[in-house]
Amino acid sequence: MSEIVLKVEDLHTSFFTRSGEFRAVDGVSFHVREAETFGLVGESACGKTVTGLSILRLLPEPAGKIVSGKITLDGTNILELSKKEMRAYRGAMISMILQDPMTSLNPVYTVGNQIAEPVRQHQRIQDKNMVEEKVISALRLLRIPAPERRLQDYPFQMSGGMRQRVVGSIAMSCYPRLLIADEPTTALDATIQAQYIALFKDVQKETDVAIIFITHDFGVVANMCHRVGVMYAGKIVETAATSTIFKAPRHPYTNALIHSVPRLDRKDDRLYSIEGQPPSLLNLPPGCRFAPRCPDVMDICNEQQPQEVEISEGHSVSCWKVK
């Protein structure tokens, strides 16, 4: 097996606001290996984006704080790095792709300029021709046609799919060890989304980058991820290989999520639906967080939080029913 690039252990991230402490991430542990894609799946406000931002240490301050936990990248605990050291990590060792390319690109700079920025910053290359060479190779990595001519284009001159490739080029320009992709395909059309995912699989093969793929779309998970962590109200409730998640989910929430998505390959008359809504992060239930909505709820579920149990190699579940 390949080397572990990132290890997150018992991460707790909270937002301290006037109305109280929002425990956005509450004890999350997972790891990603070289050339592996780990999917973080869940609904809005389950803490998947905050997990990504915690790894980059880009939480909105002063409200957001990493309360406890350990994040190790290639053996270094990045929570112990100084601000200056962390700045050298971002963009060079860890980079991120956000959902909407129109807001993550600067509209008044050319794309060539924007890709050159991390190259100049992190690789300390000042020579104009060498920078340009690096920029073109980054554009080529993301299969942008005629990269030499695209350098002078502004983001508005490109289509949504092309813009998201430019964002990908910026993220990959310094060949990072870890890429955090936060819903990178949600704003794209179906056929363009399929192109983008195929492209990223190729990029991963070429560069061995480890990817954390944050999404709510199970179709994307199936196509892109090797392993998946399903999040609910700040916790990972189930971690397993992608096909296990789809074929033999053990947590009732995973099961309900998978069955509430309509299928393209068959006609359903009725969808399985989970009643109610996720709990407020300000006022979490004392026991299992899914207990108020769970169809298989038992007495103990409302009283104590279940511990994570590894039921087979690489398949862990936090549920009282699973032993």
Binding site: A190, A194, A198, F218, G219, A222, H226, T242, S243
Partner: peptide, 24 residues
């Protein structure tokens, strides 16, 4: 339809291929 289909890793190994359209 192909672009929206669930393709699990083992389906891909068995040769179920997605149709990826070129261009936009």
């Amino acid at each position: 339809i192909s672009a929206s289909m669930l393709t699990l890793p083992e389906d891909a190994e068995q040769g179920v291929e997605q149709i990826i359209l070129k261009g936009e």
